[in-house]
């Protein structure tokens, strides 16, 4: 902090002018971000908002609209009742995946960063657990679709082992379909979460752990009383980004159920719903749904922003 002040505090007028000139580069370096943001995010956002106020859809081959109908699309969206159902589906599948994900990640990151445990082959394990995150979600879903098919190898193995008497149709049952989606999400993201949490844990000064050890703290106490509280910012970051990611859930259930969200649309997520509207050129409804999603994610981001990111801004002030 003090060092940076030395660099930028002007000592006389001539130098001050020079520093202003230097600081102009701050604006120049911002241009690419701002330009791209305005063109590819802000303009589409305004356009989406605008479209949500118009009746605009395809009725067979005939195009209806665009006619201005105010909040008509929003009212229709709520009245149809599907929205609540798809929101529920999305949240249920997210929670089913997130609970094991965060549990495993906390455990593994605590183990990996524990100086007492000195686990061997750490590099190998980290490489392995991060691997599923690299896998193309749609290919992974396709793989699970073939693996868990009634004629697939999983059913075959379970029958051979005597666990199943006859093939179980995983994708015809609500619980197993949602379970598969949650399992895949957990598998794909726990390695990523572990690495993020580890980065946070490595930031905790080692002498705190050593002091706790000298005082005779148990590993459990160390974890709950030192690691977790100090990990709070990064933990919240992980939680909210995962929730926002969960609301965006699309690829896995889309490919697994071929976009149908079956059985009985119980695995249809919000973004699958949006995708459906977009593909059938149902722009009014797509717009309204997008705006609702924007509001929900906006509120969530605001929470995480108030809890963690705001401190970053304060830290940056000098």
């Amino acid at each position: 902090m003090s060092k940076s002040n030395l660099v930028l505090v002007p000592t006389n007028k001539a130098k001050s002018g020079q520093i202003d000139k230097l600081n102009r580069w701050g604006y120049i370096f911002l241009i690419p971000f701002m330009l791209v943001f305005i063109v590819f995010q802000l303009i589409p956002l305004v356009n989406t908002l605008w479209n949500s106020l118009f009746e605009n859809y395809m009725s067979g081959l005939k195009k209806v609209g665009p006619n201005f109908i105010g909040l008509g699309n929003y009212i229709k969206l709520f009245q149809e009742g599907d929205l609540a159902k798809y929101f529920g589906n999305t949240i249920i599948m997210w929670i089913l995946g997130f609970i094991p994900q965060i549990t495993i990640s906390l455990l593994l990151s605590a183990w990996f960063t524990n100086p007492m445990l000195r686990l061997k082959c750490q590099r190998f394990f980290k490489t392995v657990i991060y691997l599923p995150n690299l896998i193309m979600a749609s290919a992974f879903a396709m793989l699970f679709f073939t693996m868990f098919d009634t004629t697939g190898p999983v059913n075959g193995l379970f029958i051979k082992m005597g666990i199943f008497k006859e093939p179980y149709a995983f994708l015809l049952h609500v619980g197993s379909t949602r379970g598969l989606v949650a399992f895949m999400n957990c598998l794909m993201w726990f390695g990523n979460t572990t690495i993020l949490l580890m980065a946070g844990m490595m930031g905790i000064p080692v002498d705190l752990f050593e002091a706790a050890d000298v005082d005779g703290a148990t590993p459990g106490q160390v974890f709950w009383k030192i690691t977790l509280p100090l990990l709070r910012p990064i933990f919240i970051y992980v939680l909210i980004t995962s929730l926002i990611g969960g609301l965006q859930m699309f690829d896995v259930p889309q490919i697994l159920t071929n976009g149908s969200g079956d059985p009985m649309r119980t695995s249809m997520t919000l973004i699958m719903f949006l995708n459906k509207h977009l593909f059938s050129k149902n722009y009014g409804m797509a717009g309204a749904l997008s705006v609702l999603l924007l509001i929900v994610t906006g509120v969530l981001s605001f929470i995480v922003f108030r809890m963690t990111a705001q401190d970053e801004v304060k830290k940056n002030r000098r």
């Binding site: 589409p44 956002l45 356009n47 989406t48 479209n51 949006l274 605001f302 705001q310």
Partner: peptide, 22 residues
């Protein structure tokens, strides 16, 4: 800085409609 952090979490999907139109 505040602005970038505030929009950090907003998913691209919510602007997909406007994005396609653009």
């Amino acid at each position: 800085f505040t602005f970038i952090l505030a929009i950090m979490m907003i998913p691209t999907q919510v602007t997909a409609l406007g994005f396609i139109n653009l």
